[in-house]
Design a protein around this nucleic acid. Structure first.
Lengths: 147, 147
DNA sequence: TCTTTTCAGTTTCTTAAAGAAACCAATCAT
DNA sequence: ATGATTGGTTTCTTTAAGAAACTGAAAAGA
């Protein structure tokens, strides 16, 4: 009755979800993007139980998404996004933009993501063709590879 | 000790994750994008327990991501993506592309997403400024709204 | 048409994971 | 030096996931 794992599927979606396909993993990453690095920061901001936070941080470190950094000369550890972790920003922003469009926020979206150079909101994310045109799901096809 | 819910957070990421922030919800959507519509299809393709599948489908229907369609003249129900569900394709493709880049697939990425018009692979997703430039996480800022 | 098989679940039960709380050693502030 | 905070671990309880058996409809076969 062992909890089903997706790690042996030959599919990038399945295997990625096996790593970050849960609420807390993604919420930890969300706060990491906001700048949180300390155990206590994640814990108090998220309201997650400490044993669960500990397990999730360990898991994210094991999978190369966070790096545990013990400051030189001792001190409390910090958890920093690796380059692989940073590249997950597309996932989080896709989630955020979907939520902005489809969830009734009492007073409009609570956070804007803006271009630091111009202060303007970033564009809605989209899948684009090689030449840059926006594609709908009907304009694309999932094509299994022959091996 | 009730499982912590994120639905009352004033954050689109948190509230979106409260709806689809679990492995099975996203795997069901993945297969829905592949064309699956029937209960038995999801069940056999995913290997998910039937009671869990039943609960997840109900949840996704309640949140307007799938629509349960009883065929005219009777017959077995089908679950179809709503327009809100279809808009989640950005999330799934962001997950897929991250996995393609960061997970060691024995024989390369198993599925290509190609533009049906050209047969070429779609471009890697990116966050773009209002004017269309690609932005890294360092080029953007999370700006809380005053209400 | 009658029978059999599949489908779409529901119910019951078991196991594993989430959460609360207490505990602890190391660090930090005073 | 003392007390408070941090970064956990351990133990225990509750909830959710998974297996399996069951059911009433629908579809397929004879």
């Amino acid at each position: 009755m062992t909890r089903t794992s997706l790690k042996d599927w030959d599919c990038s979606v399945a295997r990625t979800l096996d790593i970050i396909g849960d609420k807390w993993a993604l919420m930890i990453l969300r706060n990491a993007f906001f700048g949180t690095q300390k155990f206590s920061g994640f814990q108090s901001e998220l309201g997650i139980a400490k044993n669960i936070l500990s397990a999730r941080l360990k898991h994210l470190v094991e999978h190369g998404i966070l790096r545990r950094v013990a400051p030189q000369g001792g001190g409390h550890a910090r958890y920093k996004l690796t380059s692989a972790g940073i590249e997950l920003h597309t996932v989080l922003i896709a989630l955020l933009q979907w939520g902005d469009r489809h969830i009734g926020h009492p007073d409009g979206p609570p956070v804007d993501i803006v271009d630091v150079k111009t202060g303007r909101r970033v564009a809605p994310m989209a899948v684009r063709s090689h030449s840059g045109e926006t594609l709908t799901p009907f304009d694309m096809r999932f094509q299994p590879r022959r091996s």
